[in-house]
C-alpha cells in the first residue's frame, strides 16, 4: 500500500523563485502525491477549512514546501495552521485525525549552513528555529521529522547545486511513497542531508 503525500506549497513571489518553483514542478506528476499551491488557491487567504481538513484526512505524509521567511513559514502557511488545525480536529479530546501522520518541512534558506550555529550570525540551529513547527506537530499527535533543506539557496543555481538537490528531492518523495524512510532515524537528525543515504532503507 503506497503512502499518500500532501505537499502544501507556500511561495508568495513565484515569478522570482529559482528553487521552490522547480521543486514544486518536479513533484507535480508523481503518482500518490497531491500538490497544493496555497497562494494560487487562496490568493486572498480565504482558506477553505473543510476542504483542507478533508485533504489532511486523505494523506499519510504532509509536506510544507516553502522558502524560510524570518526563521518561519510565509504568512499563508501560518494562516493555514491557524485555521485548519482546529480544536477537536487536530487537537483536543476528539481531535485525533492527524495521529501518526508524518510532518516534513522542505525549506530553502538564504544563509549558509555555518550561519545556523551558536557562533554563526543566526545564532541558532535550524532545528532550534523550527521548534514552533515541531511542537505544533507534537501537539497534533504527528511525527515531526528533520527538515530537508537547501542552504545558500540564493546562489544554488549559479553554483550548480540545484540539480543534485532536485534529484534527492525526487528520491525522497519516492522513498516516502514506498515507505522506505526510517522515520525514527529521520526524527533525530539536524536535517535530512546530514545522513541522506542513512535514512533510506
Amino acid at each position: 500500500m503506497p503512502k499518500k503525500i500532501l505537499i502544501l506549497y507556500a511561495h508568495p513571489a513565484q515569478d522570482q523563485s529559482e528553487v521552490n518553483v522547480q521543486m514544486f514542478a518536479k513533484a507535480l506528476n508523481i503518482e500518490h502525491v497531491t500538490c497544493v499551491d496555497l497562494y494560487a488557491e487562496y490568493p486572498q487567504h480565504d482558506i477553505n477549512v473543510e476542504l483542507e481538513q478533508e485533504r489532511l484526512r486523505q494523506h499519510d505524509v504532509v509536506i510544507f514546501l516553502f522558502p524560510l521567511y524570518w526563521y518561519s513559514t510565509p504568512a499563508i502557511l501560518k494562516d493555514w495552521m491557524d485555521l485548519v488545525l482546529e480544536y477537536n480536529f487536530a487537537y483536543g479530546k476528539q481531535g485525533k485525525v492527524l495521529e501518526g501522520k508524518v510532518l516534513l518541512p522542505v525549506i530553502s534558506a538564504g544563509g549558509a549552513e555555518v550561519a545556523y550555529q551558536e557562533d554563526g550570525y543566526n545564532h541558532f540551529s535550524i532545528r532550534e528555529l523550527l521548534r514552533p513547527l515541531e511542537q505544533t506537530a507534537n501537539f497534533c499527535f504527528m511525527q515531526f521529522i528533520a527538515p530537508f533543506i537547501l542552504f545558500g539557496a540564493r546562489t544554488a543555481v549559479e553554483e550548480g547545486r540545484l540539480s543534485d538537490h532536485l534529484r534527492r528531492w525526487h528520491t525522497l518523495l519516492q522513498a516516502l511513497i514506498d515507505d522506505r524512510v526510517n522515520i525514527d532515524k529521520a526524527k533525530d537528525l539536524e536535517h535530512l542531508s546530514v545522513d541522506f543515504e542513512g535514512i533510506l532503507q
Binding site: H45, D46, I47, V49, D79, D82, L83, Y87, G92
Partner: peptide, 10 residues
Amino acid sequence: RSESGWTPPP
C-alpha cells in the same frame, strides 16, 4: 465553517 474563523478553543 463558511469563512476563516480564527476561533479560540473552549
